[in-house]
Each structure stands twice: as structure tokens, then as C-alpha cells.
Design a protein around this nucleic acid. Sequence first.
RNA 1: GUGGCCAUGGUGAAGCGGUUAACACUUACGACUGUGACUCGUACAUACGAGGGUUCGAUCCCCUCUGGCCACCCCA
Length: 422
Amino acid sequence: MALTAIKGFNDILPVEAGRWQHIEQAARRVFELNGFSEIRVPIMEKTELFCRSIGDTTDIVEKEMYSFTDKGENSVTLRPEGTAGVMRALIEHKLYALDPVARLFYLGPMFRYERPQKGRYRQFHQIGAEITGVHDPLVDAQLLNMLVQFFREIGLDEPQLQVNSLGCPECRPAYRKVLVCFLEQRLEALCEDCRRRMATNPLRALDCKVPGCIEATVGAPSMLDNLCQGCADHFAGVRRYLDATATPYSVNTRMVRGLDYYTRTTFEMVTGLLGSQSAVAAGGRYDGLIAQLGGPAIPGIGFAMGVERVALLLADQDFSDHPELFIATMGASERLFAFRLMHELLQTGVRTEMDYEGKSLKSQMRRADKLGARYSVVIGENEVASGRAVFKRMANGEQIDALLTVAEIRGFVCRSGNDLPA
RNA sequence: GUGGCCAUGGUGAAGCGGUUAACACUUACGACUGUGACUCGUACAUACGAGGGUUCGAUCCCCUCUGGCCACCCCA
């Protein structure tokens, strides 16, 4: 293979693209229904933006960023996630002044230098949504409901919603101390990674997959029991709103997020079908982020979902499109007639195909079948002369005698199930 | 960054020291000279990821490289 794509960078081939469009269209529909507007931000930002938002000591910043120095000696980075850029844009354009409640969604490629794996690639795609300016837990619940609605819309009920609260700068440090104290008493039982995590991010020990660690942390103190009054009330509010809409969810007190900016509510849509990449969508509140980036002290909450992962869950479904009509021709002399008919049908939105290369009738019919055309028609001398033809419904062989006019053809093509433009 | 597994045509794959490199799908054409699907026929890998080595001989054994997959770390 002489020239191939870069490791971890994938082509979305036509067979996949239909699936992707289905996902993107569903997201647009559901998000816009919920009052969100699209925002498009650059895929590259100053490196500093990500260091300051995601956190200097996170894995993403420490080892996964595509960073380089451009010709003007600036350190720039291909975005590893979407929230930072969107918040930068919000602040830069003072969108919060336009409307104190900003509801934004975005979609596009993200880049992380990791070893590729099932559902994980170096260039991957996220669809995300953010709400800024509202503290009330009502918006947490609306955002979650929107996410659940999205999955229902694309026909997936499998990913389950899990929620948790990570507390705030008030209560998290205290909880951290309590947890470290608990873990220190069981140091021997913990794996090497967890011992290392004690210093950096002890909460991760709760998320460890090593059996010994799972056992050792069974009775570990929970963040939820150590929330300050404000955070506890907020989390209770989120649950109350979710319950009010009968939204199915479970509380996972061991859920940990990888980005530093999360506060209070965090959540994931989890599936068991993608190996170790169980999170199909995830997010949380980031009440301190906007101020941290130099903006006003307004709160925010958002999520991102991995398009590749969603597409993987949909992999058994067919989203290909089929022509309504295939026009076969007997000989060269009928092709002009057929071409004009196809053109007229195309002008009115009827998906029509014909043979391009003067193949045999058998070949043309085979092609009509392969393309999944709903109807076929053979145009020969007689048809051209009489202006009538026998249309064949491919699914059952039914014959329909009809005039070779756009109006007549549209008459039965439209009646047979598809919605065509008027 | 670490570990395991794997690399044969457009695809899925058999072959495991000497073969015309099986079979299936796909594709093309035909059997039906104005009709697809089913069936049948014909065609389609100077070639087994790349480079070395062992051998009379290597797709099959060894080494290196490259690539892929999966898992860990971490994450959408």
C-alpha cells in the first residue's frame, strides 16, 4: 500500500456516510427543537486555551494533544474536545450579553493522540451541546432529557443514563481528604495504578477495574454523602426534575470525569456493547470554567457524544437511499427520449436513474435491481411512439400501464409510500 | 507509552515446506435475441503486508520493519 491515511484517521466511506447523516440530522432536529443553535468554531486553537480549561495535569493535556508551533512561532493545538473552543467564542463575542442564556450545539472532528482502538480514533467526531447562564437544576434535567430524546430518536434505547455529582470547590477538597484517608487504610489491597492515583486523582480509584481495588473500595465514602448544602440541594433538584419526566437513570457514585473543569452534575450515557469504550456520550456542569477563561462568572453545563461510537451501535442498520424509478432503454435511439424523461423527473424531485453506457437490457435490469429501484420501465420504439409504457414494481413484479408523463409517473410513485416534494 | 493477537484477491476466507493458491460473496458477460431477483455457465490473485535469512525449494519456518485489531492507561 503506497499511500495510506494517517494512523487513527479514518475515511468515512459512502456506506458509512448514510449512517452519519442519520445521526447528525437527528441531533440537529432534537437540539433545535430544544432551543439550541449551531455554532461553528475553529478546529485549531491556541494551546493555552486547552491547558487552562481541560487542566494542565490531565492526560489529554499531558500526552494526547496534537500541538505544534506554526510559522509565526505560536503554539497551536488541534482541538481535543469542543467545550473549550465554544466557551472561548462565547466570551470573545460576548454572546452572554445577547441572551443571558446561551444554548449552543456543535459538531465536528476532534483530535487526540492515543493508540487507536475500537470506538477510539485519533481523529474522531463529537456532537456536543452547551447551556450557559443557568444555575437551576432544571436545565441539567432538560439537557439530559434532550440527550435521552436524541437516542430514542435514532432508535437506540440501549445506552443507559448515569448521573453523579462531583461537588464544587467548596466540598470536593474535603471529600478528597476523607477518601484518601479511607484508601490509605487499604493501601496493600490497591493496585499500583491506584496507589499512584492517591496523589494525583484519588477519585479514580473508585473507577478502577482491577478486582482487588473494586473489593477494597466497596465501603468507600461517597461524594454524594459529602456534598455541601448547595451541591446537595442542586443534585436533589436534578433528580426531582428527572423523576418528574419519568426519565430513566441511575446514580453512579463512582463515575469520574477526566476533565478538570467539571463541577456538580456529571453524567454518561453508557453502553455495554462497545468493549471498554462504554461511554457513548458524557458531560457535566462547569460552573467555574467561563470565569477561569477570563469571562464573566456564569455557570454552564454541556455534553459531547462520540459519533463513531453511536455509529457503531447503529452498524446493523441500513440507511442507504434508493431510486424511485430506473429507466431502461432498448437501443441508442431511445436514449434521448429516456434522458429527457429522467431530466424532467429529476427536476420535480423524483429520484430517477437510467443506464449510462448502452448496456444490454439484462444488464440494465440487473442494475435497477441492484440499486434497489422501486420501479423500472423499458423504453423502446413502441413506447416512444405511443407515449405509454408498462412500469414494473420491482418488489412484486406488478405491472402498471401508464403514460410517460411526469404527472402520471409521480401519481403512482408518490402513492406508493415515499414523501416526495410537491 | 505498555501488553496480547493478527497480516493471502474488491470482500470473507482455505491452504501451514514442492498445489493450476480451494470455496463463497462481489463485479462483468451470457443461458432468456423487450425485462431484475432464484438457478446455471464463463471470466476475475505471475500472487500470499515490506525487506532480509534458513532451505534444492517458502504463502507456509526464523529475524527486522510496517500496518491492523483488541486490551491497559485515559477517554466521546
